[in-house]
Write a protein that binds this DNA or RNA. Structure first.
Length: 1062
RNA sequence: GCUCGAGUGGCGGAAUUGGUAGACGCGCUGGAUUCAAAAUCCAGUUCUUUCGGGAGUGUGGGUUCGAUUCCCACCUCGAGUACCA
């Protein structure tokens, strides 16, 4: 016995021990700082970045590292190509989940965040990433958020000059105000800023000046209608709301007016749009930003209100249809509503406003079809015809878009049409359809049943000076007319709103702002960071203030320039003012973090030094999920453009190339629980029931004979007894013929099922279980079970299932032949679905190299795909084969020989070199196209072929090691060392592809007949078309396929194909 | 509804500018080795067939000597968006 054991151990010496190898190299890389990037280098730079992870308490599952593995392969590849690669990692560590957890447990979010990060790091380290950890950042770190606050203050001290089309400093704006007032200024600012002259400005009080400046600042304080989420106790940005409920938690969201910090991102709408043309991003991502920004071209038109000083400005994309206007509609929230409503209509209008305000955003969205509205009693005047137009209010008009009012053209807009139909308003027609022959059909009515909203196929009629014109001609003419009359002008409108920047939360960056006489003032930048204060509870105060309202030390002393405490109830001494109580949103810290990684030494002095910024410029490759399309990816672009304007960074786009990785889905496992209460009924008379109609439900209840409680109340039936399809499959596997399968009915399934739980039926009731005399009904439901209890053949490990899930300790698991087969379904990976696969476990069992390669092998990077642990053995088998290629046993393994590293110095065979170069070419192309799945296949092919060729030549194996090292770095390092190198493989030059090894002298031609390949024929490559043709025609099989016919045509593409037609 | 993306064996997926459909891997079947298992190795595996073939890349049509690839129409699934005037 002992001897046998020894033998086995001895035999294992040269085996592929991935756990040891991987631990060894991970340690080596950490100790030698192998992947530390240099800020001064002769090498060209390359910056590879993963989207900022939020360190959640659940840790990583196998879906998370997918993008990291892809970017790591690319980073390693670039190092082999001679680049100085920056490949950093860090944590977006402020955020809601840690705070929610803090509210529940009282634990400081900093503590849980710290723990979560430690766990993340541990998991990441096991996968062997080539991160430069010396540059790690955490957004919740004061040394980091110091600079987030600093950038906020830069925004606070800036305004947007439309003439220069860039942001400029507030100091310059003050200068302009002092010299010429604001009359000539062309700035992005709040609506309705009063006009003043230079002398006015100089006469204003400081408070008044601040009030005016606030209307120009790029981050400003304003009373805005926000999305308030009562359950989360905070406001949410538009992109944080999904289907009318909060993205995190799914809580309802209501609209509420609050004083909030906002970011004037709208100033950048056009540049954000234009910038998309300069970056290499996936088209769907660009499309969703384009839609989000929502540029539309049209005109503003002012409508005078009759017998009133007021005017209604509207925005329209179809100014050409102005002669089709038959009424006006205002949003219920519109300021003018209360001012113009007539006394007769007052009550109706007020009732309507009250009713619509109650409806939540979600209801309003769900219920888009019902048409509601009410007449205000007032009339507007058509700017050209002077006709009176009744003014209505209706909630299909949104307060937040355009001017919150529309000119209704029922013949040209479906919503206006529906509104007009519903309230019996006139629908004048202004369209004459064009007929295909080039004429105009005056008689046909385009708008009998619906609005005509096309921009082509018509000319205008009943439109005064626009008659006979098409869309573009009319649009041009009407805008000119509007401008001449001074009642409107051409305008571009954006859907994009300014971004709300305040959150009523604790775990975020404090604003470096205090309030002096009600006006916000910046704390001096040299006093940053303004640290997050301690609070005893993470909830809002009783007065409804944000959690920072609980901080006892949260006032700013202007004289001492420090945070001081003011005892509760006391008036602050002079020069001491309250600090801002809101904190910044999650996207603050993530909008600039990519610049922080560039800096390594001067992080205390600057957010990033000029040298670092000039060297690294922007991110060359950014990999992450598409869910950030309208959040992080838009805000980052905005901040970068702003920072560029103010000369803080040299680039105006953060991410040159971006790739979206697809989600890895989980395969959930289900067990099927049968209700233990079984209802026995008489068999119904089918004919009688068919005649009964609605009464049948009541009648069936009368048929119930008895309800039987089985002996166990937790009964699991197998998949085969849950779904009829599976039942049939099972029968088929038991050797039933197709005919027999066809004859199977639900009744057969029921019989088997009843049989399977017969032992649980109380003895006295057993006679009821006869399908010939009774109808038996019960229910069963699918329940998620932990995938770790299930093996690759979908069998449930019944013992661990019972032991580890307390709910089913005493369950009766009904198997078939002692096996219980679970149901499977592909779903998102999540804790609640018990389908999470942990990368640590995979690394432990199969190794990190196998995990890395398998994740790539699953399919194209951008595509969503299900995870199936069973398939991983193929990749592991491959790595074992690869290992064996560098080892040999003498005597042969079967004769008790042991594996030893062996590489021959002899020159390689022609075939082996061909395999090598074919692989170099393919892998290089694949990496450059981010087609990692296909290069895994080519590695497998290469190793299969080299093994078949018994290749052990260094000439081939050395370059092969480098080739594969981006994918499986640990095994590559180990083999590299065994090949006799002392340095890490990570910067070894990538093998060079040489065409000469692939040159072929002959080609196996596929010979097709009418496009169908029939046989192949090997022919030399050098020969002419004629020679090919005669060789093919002379072939015996050709005659056979032609069956005596004469070919009509022979297509020959040398080096490709021969096709015979006839 | 609109915008975008995708439909190929039992499964994940390959297929250069239109040129041998199903590479590679999983699973399955059979075999070798083993007391046995694991591991390993070998062979087979789109469907159908009267073993000559025939059909086949969501469906229907078109262009072509030749279409998974290009064009038109439709169906299904997925993602985003949602009264945007």
């Amino acid at each position: 016995m002992g001897n046998q054991f020894f033998q086995k151990e001895k035999r294992n010496m040269g085996k592929y021990h991935f756990n040891e190898i991987e631990a060894k190299w991970q340690k080596f890389w950490a100790e030698n700082q192998t992947f530390k990037a240099e800020n001064q280098s002769k090498k060209p730079k390359y910056y590879v970045l993963d989207m900022f992870p939020y360190p959640s308490g659940a840790g990583l599952h196998v879906g998370h590292p997918l993008g990291y593995i892809a970017s790591d392969i690319y980073a390693r590849y670039k190092r082999h190509q001679g680049f100085n690669v920056l490949h950093p990692q860090g944590y977006d560590s402020f955020g809601l989940p840690a705070e929610q957890y803090a509210i529940q447990t009282g634990q400081h979010p900093a503590k849980t965040t710290e723990e979560n990060i430690a766990r993340y790091r541990e998991q990441l380290d096991k996968i062997g990433f080539s991160f430069d950890w010396s540059r790690e950042v955490r957004t919740s770190n004061p040394e980091y958020y110091k600079w987030t606050q600093w950038i906020f203050l830069q925004l606070f001290e800036s305004w947007y000059d439309k003439n220069a089309d860039k942001a400029r400093s507030i100091e310059e704006l003050r200068g302009i105000f002092s010299s010429e007032g604001n009359v000539h200024i062309n700035a992005v600012a709040d609506e309705g800023v009063e006009h003043f002259t230079a002398s006015d400005w100089l006469g204003f009080s400081e408070i008044k000046k601040q009030e005016i400046l606030l209307k120009y600042r790029l981050t400003y304080l304003a009373e805005t209608e926000v999305n308030w989420c009562p359950q989360l106790g905070t406001v949410l940005a538009n992109d944080e709301i999904v289907n009318g409920v909060s993205e995190r938690g799914g809580y309802p969201v209501v609209r509420k007016k609050m004083k909030q910090w906002s970011m004037r991102i709208t100033a950048y709408a056009q540049r954000l749009l234009d910038g998309l043309d300069t970056i290499d991003w996936p088209q769907p991502l660009k499309d969703s930003q384009t839609n989000w920004i929502g540029r539309s071209k049209g005109a503003t038109v002012e409508f005078k209100i009759q017998n009133s000083e007021f005017k209604i400005p509207v925005f329209t994309t179809r100014p050409d249809t102005i002669f089709g206007v038959s009424f006006m509609v205002l949003a219920p929230e519109h300021d003018l509503v209360s001012k113009i409503t007539t006394s007769e209509q007052k009550e109706a209008v007020e009732n309507y406003i009250e009713a619509t305000a109650k409806r939540s955003e979600r209801e309003r969205m769900a219920d888009v079809k019902s048409i509601t509205g009410v007449f205000t009693g007032a009339y507007a005047e058509h700017p050209f015809t002077k006709e009176p137009l009744p003014i209505w209010i209706g909630d299909y008009v949104l307060a937040g878009y355009g001017t919150g009012a529309v000119m209704s053209v029922p013949c040209g807009d479906q919503r206006d049409y529906d509104f007009a139909k519903h309230f019996n308003l006139p629908i004048p027609n202004i369209f004459s359809p064009l007929v295909p022959e080039g004429g105009i059909n005056e008689n046909e009515n385009l708008i009998e049943t619906e609005a005509f909203s096309e921009k082509t196929g018509f000319v205008l009629k009943n439109s005064d000076f626009l008659n006979g014109l098409n869309y573009s001609e009319a649009t041009e003419k009407i805008i000119a007319a509007l401008e001449e009359k001074g009642v409107g002008k051409g305008k571009i409108n954006y859907r994009l709103r300014d971004a709300v920047f305040s959150r009523q939360r604790y775990w975020g960056e404090p604003f470096p702002i205090y309030y002096k006489d009600g006006m916000p003032h910046a704390i001096p930048t040299e006093c940053l960071p303004l640290r997050l204060p301690e609070v005893e509870k993470y909830l809002p105060t009783e007065e409804g203030e944000p959690p920072l309202g609980r901080a006892t030390k949260w006032h700013w002393d202007e004289n001492k320039n420090e945070v001081v405490s003011v005892p509760e109830g006391e008036k602050p001494p002079s020069g001491v003012w309250g600090l801002e109580l809101n904190t910044m949103p999650g996207w603050a810290g993530s909008s600039w973090y990519f610049f922080r990684y560039m800096e390594d030494e001067k992080r205390d002095e600057v957010f990033a030094s000029k040298e670092a910024l000039d060297y690294w410029k922007n991110v060359d490759l950014y990999i992450g999920g598409s869910e950030h399309a309208t959040g992080h990816l838009l805000y980052s672009r905005f901040w970068v453009k702003f920072m560029h304007d103010r000369g803080l960074v040299p680039v105006d786009e953060p991410f040159k190339k971006l790739i979206n990785q697809g989600m890895i889905l989980g395969e959930s496992a289900f067990v099927y629980r049968m209700n233990s209460k079984i209802t026995i009924s008489e068999i119904p008379d089918v004919k009688k029931f068919a005649q009964m109609g609605d009464e049948w439900a009541r009648e069936t209840r009368k048929l119930i004979v008895k309800t039987i409680q089985l002996k166990n109340d937790k009964i699991l039936i197998p998949l085969q007894f849950f779904k009829f399809d599976e039942f049939k499959k099972w029968k088929r596997s038991k050797g039933f013929s197709e005919d027999e399968i066809k004859k199977l009915t639900e009744k057969d399934l029921e019989k088997e099922r009843i049989n399977s739980f017969k032992h649980l039926i109380p003895k006295e009731d057993i006679h009821y279980f006869d399908l010939n005399n009774f109808s038996i009904s019960y229910s069963a439901q699918a329940i998620h079970t932990n995938v770790s209890f299930v093996n690759s053949s979908n069998e449930l490990d019944i013992n661990s299932f019972k032991n580890e899930s307390s709910e089913f300790k005493d369950a009766e698991v009904i198997g078939i032949n002692g096996k219980y087969i679970v149901g499977r379904e592909v779903e998102k990976m999540s804790k609640s679905k018990y389908n999470v696969v942990n990368p640590d476990d995979i690394c432990e069992q199969y190794g990190a190299d196998t995990l890395r390669m398998y994740e790539m092998f699953l399919g194209p990077l951008e595509q969503a795909k299900p995870w199936n642990t069973a398939g991983i053995t193929g990749v592991q088998g491959f790595l074992k084969k690869l290992w064996k290629l560098y080892h040999s046993a003498s005597p042969a393994l079967s004769e008790g020989g042991e594996l030893e590293f062996y590489v021959s110095e002899d020159s390689a065979s022609k075939d082996s070199l061909k395999v090598l170069h074919k692989t170099i070419k393919k892998v290089q192309e694949d990496i450059e196209n981010f087609s990692f799945n296909t290069s895994v296949s080519s590695f497998m092919i290469a190793v299969n072929e080299l093994t078949a060729q018994n290749c052990n030549s260094r000439e081939v194996l050395k370059p092969l090691t480098i080739l594969i090292s981006p994918y499986t770095p640990h095994i590559a390092e180990e083999l590299w060392e065994k090949l006799g190198h002392n340095e890490s493989i990570s910067t070894a030059p990538f093998p060079k592809f040489e065409e000469k090894f692939l040159v072929e002298s002959s080609k196996e031609y596929p010979i097709s007949f009418n496009g169908k390949m029939r046989f192949t024929l090997e022919l030399p490559l050098g020969i002419s078309k004629e020679e090919i043709e005669s060789a093919v025609m002379a072939h015996e099989k050709t005659a056979q396929y032609l069956e005596g016919r004469k070919p009509k045509k022979v297509i020959i593409v040398p080096g490709k194909i021969v096709n015979i037609v006839g």
